[in-house]
Design a binder for these strands. Structure first.
Lengths: 261, 261
DNA sequence: CGCCGACTTGACACCAATCAAGATAAGTGG
DNA sequence: CCACTTATCTTGATTGGTGTCAAGTCGGCG
């Protein structure tokens, strides 16, 4: 059910007031999400990229950027906002594979098509690059290809992290892991105030963590009950006990059954 | 508990009777695991690789190739055998992230260290490449770097597949997915005989699928009860109903509760 | 043969998915 | 601004599924 038109700025006119930055880092160092400051692209490379970029402005959340199975013509990079990358299982269940944040690149094709879907979860500004032309540039600029490799390697680490969470943690632990993940982004977490501002709803959290919505709500309630976090407003959470959240990771998935007799 | 010494052939003498093949494929086509035949490396590149390779011969399973946290000096490629890539959670639980098969490359560093552990699950022959020298070659041979990118991209798809499985499938479905995965490798599956020969024990299957060993055993028992597969010997399974296995993917994770009243 | 590890089966408690229904928040139109 | 609709979130009751403990059986190897 397609319920709304995509809301885009006119293509072909790259915004100049926004610096174009695809995050990158030296080889052998991709475990931490690269920050914007450590940008390895040369001015020339940045110029080349900017020349083929289009800025898309999404005014509200819930809009689809592309869907799995579509032919690939573009790849995308986030300037502002959050994008969810998802896939639908054979039984129709949606699994969110990742949340992409400013600086991230997504939409890299596989077999010429998108294997995942991408939707903005909130208002967002996104750069769009023609894939063919990006490939052409990469042939000339090996550094750019290296950046792409770094990006994919980073995504792989992140996916493996997700596997660890889904494989061995209970719902409460998963929620803690999810929150801890976002505490590392100054863009979302104000460390001084201990306030986390997430534009992600329960629905999406649940589909990301592989749990039911109701269970996600219950897990949030338990966080408050146990004094680890407190909900101030929708998408606005005060983190009361980071150590406590980390401590949860050490627990077993399930409490040991009491040895009777 | 380190219980055995590594069993290696003397280093520095690359075997010549085995062709050195790192699987590769054209850009934009990584969804299927690349097959050996479609090898994109030029003879020159193969020669260069072979020159820096060492062959390791593991005579039995259970031997560690490297452990998470160790400094990276080598990357590895499988010629024969199966390797499990695993990581330990904070609570000590082991999660197997992937099984690597002949043609696969693994041990790519992150921040200069291995982020995962690798152990052979059966006798195996493995090529070892000094990472620094491989990087040197990649600078000269862009095609090689592209191959590395393809490899990482393939691993990412595989990891995302795993996320789908762990996120929304019950134990029975997971086991079916696992079996179906291996049906695609002629090296393990004899399609004519419908026989799957896997050198992977229940222990490892359970840790791969994120379930308890006992649950894995029960899932196998159910496969037999429902006539989908039959265990001939340890690690030797007759697949009786591929369609049936695929059908399982369509079910919900949990049976709908009966609408009472 | 006897040991040991791998695997299986059973019992049971606990977790979380489901169904249901209410509460709260966010839009929408008057 | 309010009344209304709609979406999102929360809480409760129920039960299926699976992790845990326990106690087996099987199979390979010395």
């Amino acid at each position: 059910m397609l319920k709304s038109r995509v809301n885009r700025s006119e293509p072909s006119m790259p915004e100049t007031r926004h610096t174009l930055e695809i995050r990158a880092r030296p080889f052998d160092r991709v475990s931490d999400r690269p920050s914007r400051i450590e940008n390895l692209l040369s001015p020339k490379e940045q110029r080349e990229l900017r020349a083929i970029a289009t800025v898309l402005d999404y005014r509200r959340g819930g809009i689809t950027i592309f869907s799995e199975g579509e032919d690939v013509h573009f790849v995308y990079a986030i300037d502002e906002g959050v994008v969810r990358i998802s896939r639908h299982a054979a039984n129709g269940q949606r699994q969110i594979l990742a949340f992409m944040v400013p600086g991230d690149l997504f939409g890299i094709p596989d077999g010429g098509v998108y294997v995942n879907s991408a939707e903005v979860v909130c208002p967002a500004r996104i750069y769009r690059f023609p894939w063919q032309r990006l490939k052409d540039i990469m042939v000339r600029e090996p550094q750019l290809q290296l950046n792409l490799l770094m990006k994919v390697a980073y995504d792989l680490r992140q996916a493996q992290r997700q596997i660890m969470i889904l494989g061995h943690q209970n719902t409460y632990q998963r929620l803690a892991s999810f929150l801890l993940d976002f505490l590392r982004y100054p863009g979302f977490y104000d460390e001084k105030q201990s306030r986390l501002n997430l534009p992600i709803n329960r629905f999406d959290v649940a589909d990301y963590l592989g749990i039911a919505r109701e269970t996600a709500a219950r897990a949030f309630a338990r966080l408050e009950r146990e004094g680890l976090a407190r909900r101030l407003a929708s998408g606005d959470i005060e983190i009361l006990n980071v150590k406590g959240l980390q401590q949860l990771q050490l627990d077993r998935r399930r409490r040991r059954v009491k040895t009777m007799r």
